[in-house]
Simulated assay, not measured.
Amino acid sequence: MTNSEKIVITLIAHGSKLSAELVQQLSRDIENTLRCQIKDTKPLSDRALDIYLEDVVSSTVEETRGLLSPFIEANSEIVDIIVQRNDQYRKNKKVVVFDMDSTLIYQEVIELIAAYADVEPQVKAITDRAMNNEIDFKESLRERVALLEGLKIDTLYDEIKGKLKITKGVHELCKVLSAEGSKLAVLSGGFIQFASFIAKELKFDVAKANTLEMDTEGKLTGKVLGDIVDGQCKAETLLELCEKYQCPVEASCMVGDGGNDLPAMSVAGFGIAWNAKPRVQKAAPCRLNTDSLRDALYIFGYTDSEIESIISKGN
């Protein structure tokens, strides 16, 4: 294995301490499956642990991940198992891009809007299919927005913004990344009024999302203005941001939950599926199914003491 393909496997327990018994069991499974030896381990917290390998038979991270996929699936209810390159880009993230709905915030904004138009069940059904990559995102957005035609939205923006709940751990995650020099962006298949609001709340550098068309009375026409921010747009924008900020693509990361986040994950240096739909979890470079997005910092290699030190310096 080349130096650039050295591997680290991170274990992150869901909600409780990472037991010694589970670590021993998974360590045996890893060594037997990969026909290698564990060179070293490094505790990141009482819930997270890095495992460093040597003499791995598989030649790439992707192959190693594939070999371990049965164990990743079998243990997915209690622990996340993340396989990635152990290189200079793991911790040195320069561009980190986030989806908004069900990632940075708990809700799907279009469903909040739909509730005012009494079409929430219909919109939610289409959203679920789109996020699971079952239907084209552009078409799903057009179908959902069409259901909102006639809603007087201009007076509802502030009311809906007041209902948005930022996901647990996001503030800490973003504080650390910003303090470490990362440029942060929200690329959303939702709507720009809300993406800009969340970007301001979290002190992001970039916000990009869709624009709902309104008539002269402030009512929705059932259409979206301009090009739709879909998966391809997110991927292209991520690469543009890497160029803008002179960031090696390897030092970028995409975090999201839906099928329209997969294209950006595929072009980024790394991708994290956050409590994602089943098909997305299987296709993404890694999955994170804990209750706090702060745990992404373990994926990047930060220990609890490092996290707390960086946050305290910024306060």
Rank of each mutant, 00 (worst) to 15 (best):
K200D: 15
V96R: 06
N260H: 09
A273S: 05
L187W: 04
Q281S: 10
S252W: 07
L44S: 04
L164C: 04
F98R: 04
A276K: 00
R142H: 09
E180C: 13
G226H: 05
G269E: 04
L173K: 00
N86I: 06
Y157S: 04
M214V: 11
D99S: 04
Q84L: 07
D227C: 09
N75L: 03
I51H: 06
I153T: 07
I7S: 09
A115D: 15
K208I: 13
R35P: 02
V79I: 06
E111R: 03
Y298E: 00
V224F: 01
L212S: 14
A146E: 15
E111D: 15
A125W: 01
I135M: 14
Y52S: 09
G256Y: 08
G181N: 07
D118F: 14
V229K: 08
M1T: 08
E134H: 01
S58M: 15
L220D: 05
G181M: 08
N275S: 02
S76A: 14
T216Y: 07
E111S: 14
V79T: 02
V280G: 12
M1L: 11
W274H: 13
T290V: 12
A48F: 09
S312L: 13
G162M: 08
A284G: 10
A264G: 03
T33A: 12
Y52M: 11
Q37F: 10
L164S: 03
H14A: 09
V123D: 07
H14K: 13
V176H: 08
N315G: 10
P263V: 15
G271W: 02
E108V: 13
L293Y: 02
Q24F: 06
K138H: 11
G222H: 08
A114M: 03
F270E: 09
T2Q: 12
F137I: 12
I105V: 14
F270K: 00
L53V: 02
K219T: 05
L147D: 05
I310S: 07
K234E: 08
K124V: 08
S58E: 15
N132A: 12
E240F: 10
E236Q: 15
D230K: 12
S76M: 06
T127H: 13
G301P: 01
A268V: 01
G181Y: 04
V186Y: 05
N75E: 05
G231Y: 10
F194C: 13
Q232K: 11
Y116R: 13
A125E: 11
S178W: 02
K168G: 00
E77S: 13
S292I: 05
F98K: 05
G226P: 01
A146H: 15
Q107K: 11
G301W: 00
K124N: 10
R65Q: 10
D215S: 01
L238T: 08
S178V: 03
N260G: 06
E201N: 10
